[in-house]
Design a protein around this nucleic acid. Structure first.
Lengths: 222, 222
DNA sequence: GGCAAAGTTGACAGCGCTCTCCACTTTCGG
DNA sequence: CCGAAAGTGGAGAGCGCTGTCAACTTTGCC
């Protein structure tokens, strides 16, 4: 419900503000359930408003998404920050990953926003804030010797990309199954005598963004 | 180049057969590179043929895909079967997974076909043939105590789903980076004293299919 | 060579989507 | 209570996609 817009320009007219809230409420519910694929027509219908109104309030899809998700995105950053306070470095790392994926499991729209709106302001800022924190999380775990040497923040950053499809797939079948896949991934990070060093060098910062951008190119329906 | 159609019905006219091959050749190249998202218009253009011709030969997208990929799908099954001949059960398992993902990394269309054409005849048959083999691979590894107790064939079946997005993302950036993610997953399967049992019970056969079906529902472009 | 069957062509119908536009309605300050 | 400014509705333009069809061309058998 953060309304930073009142400061910048003259407040909306009463009816306009009402409609704006309606749109946001409807969109929040619809996107949480169905993901970003929802069309503006569906949105308008659910908000009991005409398409034109939606477009007047939110000139493009991105501005609607930003209005909807900046708050939730903040929450993810908080999760990361809080995990730094957890004493055990392994627990801290696992806790953060698990917690943030739990949030995504409960909100499909948010999940897709995090993964596919790579170039939006919100996500660019988010990554800028998140990266140093995750680097700390990883550094602590490395220092404690609980994760494989060579594992980096970018490796953690790819985990949602890996678990995401399983999460989408299992949502209607076995909502909790993604935890199994996540568990496998997490155990794959743990330090363990037999493990060799990771193959292939790690990503550079801008390569990571480009990777996410490319990953959104998706298949040919059914 | 398998042509099982000559037996079933009267052979195609000379020009028709020529066009059919053109379409297949063009489609193979185009889909390998760009994935299943390629439209029939693009396909027709690349094959230097009209859209109508493509539709006459292949009434719907699925029949084209089946003609294109059954061979490659067979290859995957062979890979699995051959891996049973590898003496070391761990090497056998890792070898199969790695090899089959290498094939997918080199052919984007095939990768998407394997993951998204869940209900096609080819894929149904493929899974039916693959499942018992993968179960053997897993059973051998379990018997040798090299993988975590509780890991099943379905867990392996989800690996392509997890590595897939990384593969798509890194293709244009660092084509080999997916091996890093795969390595993490594979190490997550390895038996290791500290590891706890996997959370959440394993999938049933039909749940697995449904999961794949659901996983294809993808985000909202951009 | 002729002709029926087989094949080809490409314009076009239909769909769902994003986004625009303008005639109409509502709000709100004076 | 009035009028300008703000907001709204919804038809429809434009796009890319799937799939169709009727007029035309090619093939191959006699």
């Amino acid at each position: 419900m953060s309304d930073d817009r009142e400061q910048t320009c003259r407040p909306l007219r009463k009816d306009a503000e009402r409609n704006r809230q309606r749109i946001l409420t409807a969109a929040r519910a619809l996107l949480a359930e169905q993901g970003l694929g929802v069309s503006h027509d569906q949105l308008a219908e659910a908000a009991d408003v005409a398409v034109g109104t939606v477009y007047r309030r939110f000139p493009d899809k991105d501005s609607l998404l930003e209005a909807l998700f900046t708050e939730d995105v903040d929450q993810i950053v908080c999760l990361a920050q809080h995990s730094l306070e957890v004493a055990d470095p392994w627990e801290a790392m696992v806790g953060f990953i698990t917690r943030s994926l739990e949030v995504q499991a409960g909100n499909r729209g948010l999940k897709e926003f995090l993964m596919f709106n790579v170039t939006s302001d919100t996500m660019t800022t988010c990554r800028a804030r998140l990266l140093p924190v995750i680097e700390q999380i990883v550094a602590r775990a490395q220092a404690a010797g609980v994760i494989r040497p060579g594992v980096t923040a970018y490796d953690l950053g790819l985990i949602p990309l890996m678990v995401g499809p399983v999460m989408d797939g299992c949502r209607a079948v076995r909502p909790e199954l993604w935890r199994r896949s996540l568990d496998i991934v997490i155990e794959g990070l743990r330090a363990c005598p037999e493990k060799e060093r990771l193959p292939v060098p790690d990503l550079e910062p801008d390569e990571f963004v480009e990777l996410l951008r490319q990953a959104q190119t998706s298949p040919g329906r059914r």
